[in-house]
Design a protein around this nucleic acid. Structure first.
Length: 105
DNA sequence: TTAGTGACTGTAG
DNA sequence: GCTACAGCCACTA
Protein backbone atom coordinates (compact mmCIF):
# COMPACT_ATOMS: atom_id res chain seq x y z
CA UNK A 1 0.00 0.00 0.00
CA UNK A 2 1.33 3.41 -0.84
CA UNK A 3 -1.19 5.76 0.63
CA UNK A 4 0.95 7.54 3.13
CA UNK A 5 3.53 10.21 2.63
CA UNK A 6 5.99 7.79 4.03
CA UNK A 7 5.40 5.02 1.49
CA UNK A 8 5.49 7.38 -1.43
CA UNK A 9 8.96 8.44 -0.43
CA UNK A 10 10.26 4.93 -0.89
CA UNK A 11 8.49 4.60 -4.19
CA UNK A 12 10.01 7.76 -5.60
CA UNK A 13 13.48 7.03 -4.30
CA UNK A 14 13.55 3.71 -6.08
CA UNK A 15 12.78 5.54 -9.31
CA UNK A 16 15.88 7.67 -9.11
CA UNK A 17 18.12 6.66 -12.04
CA UNK A 18 21.68 5.61 -11.35
CA UNK A 19 24.10 8.47 -11.65
CA UNK A 20 21.47 11.02 -10.74
CA UNK A 21 20.22 12.49 -7.49
CA UNK A 22 17.23 14.36 -6.12
CA UNK A 23 16.44 16.54 -3.16
CA UNK A 24 14.22 16.12 -0.13
CA UNK A 25 12.23 19.12 -1.19
CA UNK A 26 11.62 17.74 -4.68
CA UNK A 27 10.25 14.53 -3.27
CA UNK A 28 8.17 16.25 -0.64
CA UNK A 29 6.84 18.71 -3.19
CA UNK A 30 5.87 15.91 -5.54
CA UNK A 31 3.93 14.21 -2.79
CA UNK A 32 2.24 17.48 -1.94
CA UNK A 33 3.97 18.91 1.11
CA UNK A 34 7.20 20.78 0.36
CA UNK A 35 7.48 21.66 4.01
CA UNK A 36 7.46 18.00 4.92
CA UNK A 37 10.94 17.48 3.53
CA UNK A 38 12.03 16.46 7.00
CA UNK A 39 9.71 13.48 6.82
CA UNK A 40 11.39 12.43 3.59
CA UNK A 41 14.72 12.21 5.27
CA UNK A 42 13.28 10.43 8.20
CA UNK A 43 11.55 7.94 5.95
CA UNK A 44 14.87 7.20 4.32
CA UNK A 45 16.39 6.71 7.72
CA UNK A 46 13.93 3.93 8.27
CA UNK A 47 14.54 2.66 4.74
CA UNK A 48 17.04 0.28 6.28
CA UNK A 49 14.08 -1.61 7.65
CA UNK A 50 12.50 -1.97 4.25
CA UNK A 51 12.71 -5.23 2.35
CA UNK A 52 13.46 -3.48 -0.92
CA UNK A 53 16.67 -1.54 -1.22
CA UNK A 54 16.19 2.21 -1.30
CA UNK A 55 18.93 4.35 -2.89
CA UNK A 56 18.87 6.82 -0.04
CA UNK A 57 22.37 7.94 -0.98
CA UNK A 58 20.88 9.56 -4.08
CA UNK A 59 18.86 11.95 -1.97
CA UNK A 60 20.52 15.11 -0.75
CA UNK A 61 19.42 18.45 0.59
CA UNK A 62 18.78 21.37 -1.71
CA UNK A 63 22.40 22.50 -1.46
CA UNK A 64 23.64 19.18 -2.75
CA UNK A 65 25.15 18.47 0.61
CA UNK A 66 25.30 14.85 1.75
CA UNK A 67 23.50 15.49 5.01
CA UNK A 68 22.14 11.97 4.97
CA UNK A 69 25.59 10.49 5.25
CA UNK A 70 25.40 10.80 9.00
CA UNK A 71 22.95 7.93 9.04
CA UNK A 72 25.15 5.60 7.05
CA UNK A 73 27.44 3.07 8.74
CA UNK A 74 30.36 5.34 7.88
CA UNK A 75 30.42 8.97 6.90
CA UNK A 76 32.14 8.15 3.63
CA UNK A 77 29.73 5.40 2.57
CA UNK A 78 27.30 7.77 0.89
CA UNK A 79 30.09 9.58 -0.90
CA UNK A 80 31.60 6.34 -2.12
CA UNK A 81 28.30 5.13 -3.52
CA UNK A 82 27.68 8.36 -5.39
CA UNK A 83 31.20 8.51 -6.78
CA UNK A 84 30.86 4.95 -7.99
CA UNK A 85 27.91 6.15 -10.05
CA UNK A 86 29.94 8.87 -11.66
CA UNK A 87 28.86 11.70 -9.41
CA UNK A 88 31.50 14.21 -8.43
CA UNK A 89 31.75 14.90 -4.73
CA UNK A 90 33.83 17.53 -3.00
CA UNK A 91 33.70 18.06 0.72
CA UNK A 92 30.57 15.90 0.98
CA UNK A 93 28.90 18.15 -1.54
CA UNK A 94 27.79 17.40 -5.08
CA UNK A 95 29.67 19.60 -7.53
CA UNK A 96 27.50 19.20 -10.62
CA UNK A 97 24.24 19.00 -8.74
CA UNK A 98 22.14 20.83 -11.32
CA UNK A 99 23.68 18.64 -13.97
CA UNK A 100 22.54 15.36 -12.46
CA UNK A 101 19.50 16.56 -10.58
CA UNK A 102 16.53 14.29 -11.16
CA UNK A 103 13.03 15.32 -10.31
CA UNK A 104 9.95 13.09 -9.86
CA UNK A 105 7.50 13.83 -12.62
C1' DT B 1 -2.97 9.09 24.56
C1' DT B 2 0.31 12.87 24.74
C1' DA B 3 4.62 14.73 23.85
C1' DG B 4 8.99 14.89 21.57
C1' DT B 5 11.85 14.45 17.61
C1' DG B 6 13.67 14.21 12.93
C1' DA B 7 18.59 12.81 6.63
C1' DC B 8 14.59 20.06 5.31
C1' DT B 9 12.90 24.28 3.22
C1' DG B 10 11.24 28.94 2.68
C1' DT B 11 10.45 33.48 4.50
C1' DA B 12 11.70 37.30 7.40
C1' DG B 13 14.98 40.31 9.98
C1' DG C 1 25.30 37.01 3.39
C1' DC C 2 23.93 34.83 7.67
C1' DT C 3 20.76 33.68 11.58
C1' DA C 4 16.25 32.60 13.40
C1' DC C 5 11.58 30.68 13.28
C1' DA C 6 7.65 28.14 11.69
C1' DG C 7 5.48 24.25 9.14
C1' DC C 8 5.11 19.74 7.49
C1' DC C 9 3.64 14.10 8.84
C1' DA C 10 4.81 9.81 10.96
C1' DC C 11 7.07 7.14 14.41
C1' DT C 12 8.90 6.00 19.20
C1' DA C 13 8.81 6.23 24.22
Amino acid sequence: MSDTFFDKVYEICRKIPSGQVTTYGAIAAYIGSPKAARMVGWALNKSSSQKEFVPAHRVVNRNGLLTGKIHFPNYNTMKELLESEGIKIKDDKILNLEDILWKPE
